[in-house]
Design a protein around this nucleic acid. Structure first.
Lengths: 187, 187
DNA sequence: CTACGACGTAACGGTTGCGTTCCGCCGTTT
DNA sequence: AAACGGCGGAACGCAACCGTTACGTCGTAG
């Protein structure tokens, strides 16, 4: 039986290496070195780098994000923005996600894995968020959840993961107001 | 004197390699191979990979984007969205930019170069766009150009370069309306 | 107490790329 | 005609990593 503590050490090492050097430069030897294990322990579990990273990433990505339900759209939105912006400020997310996204542009298997992880997931959040708001009459009937997700996640991702500018205290507040107005206007 | 046609061949090869394998896996030997050139021709021009890529990227990025000035904010915005979305649909942009962005998270020199290229530039566009609109009374006085740029570029970048979903015919139209409403609301 | 199996270490041959050097070719300059 | 210099090609020694194998250790299950 494979030892669980070794598996955990490897998983952690992979995440750290991913954040530090990215998928392209990640090497099995470096992972083994960092995890303090032999290469053999890794090859006993996965047959190559791609398989290893995909399995580990899928696992991490499948952890459920709590669907916001505060009773009002502006409350839901504010909460969602808080959750996402906090997540994106962590090294794990802000380094690994853009890196894998760039990699996904070249590797169909990575692309597919991330699509499942991100789209399925965050799309579900968007649909619930918008659905609730429409049901409550806070947003017009025809509001497109797809556009809404772009309007909500896009700017945050851009600012935190791409432009890498800090967000000031009142940014999320301003942003909540702006997004609400934007979505009301598209109906 | 270094031969100009050789330099051009190398520059093109670098861009193509960047799009195909990314910065991390880009090798001088592959560039030379693709350009049909000896490695010596490359080392005669740049002393290493980073210097080479940075010089070439800076050069490309510094090409001016025409500042929109159609006479109305919605016209300016629609034009800007058109320009950016067209650019982001090209392989050159949609592969290279996310890749270098991810790389910039690790390499300060790349980060700095891209900051100059992107921020200075697109921030200037944003400030002009918003400034004109405010001057015309189309947007409220306190409109933050910084937030505006996030609201405009973020969703487009997210959808085209990250989520890699297509944009439908009426998407930009809907989006223009949404952004206008959003910015009016933040004043 | 024995057998099993996962472990770390070390080494294997092979590949790729680094940055450098030397060579002979060839067009341009003088 | 001769000198110069950029060129491609080939090879250098070095380093990293690939995926695999052999070996000896050690904890645990039987």
């Amino acid at each position: 039986m494979l030892r669980g503590d070794i598996t955990v050490a490897i998983r952690n090492a992979v995440m750290t290496e991913l954040a530090e050097v990215g998928y392209g430069r990640l090497s099995i030897e470096a992972v083994a070195r960092r995890a303090g294990v032999g290469k053999t322990a890794i090859y006993r579990r996965w047959s190559n780098k791609l398989e290893m990273v995909m399995e580990i990433i899928s696992d991490v990505a499948e952890r459920k994000v709590p669907l916001p339900d505060t009773g009002s759209f502006s409350g839901d939105l504010a909460l969602l923005l808080m959750i996402v912006s906090t997540a994106l400020r962590h090294r794990m997310a802000s380094q690994i996600i853009p890196d894998l996204m760039a990699e996904a542009a070249r590797n169909p298997q990575i692309s597919e894995t991330l699509q499942r992880a991100l789209r399925t997931h965050q799309q579900a959040v968007g649909e619930k968020l918008i659905g609730q708001a429409v049901a409550r009459g806070e947003l017009p009937d025809g509001t497109d959840p797809d556009v809404a997700v772009d309007m909500i996640l896009g700017p945050l991702y851009w600012r935190l993961a791409v432009a890498r500018q800090p967000i000031e205290d009142d940014y999320l507040e301003k942003f909540t107001i702006a997004v609400t107005a934007a979505l009301k206007a598209t109906g």
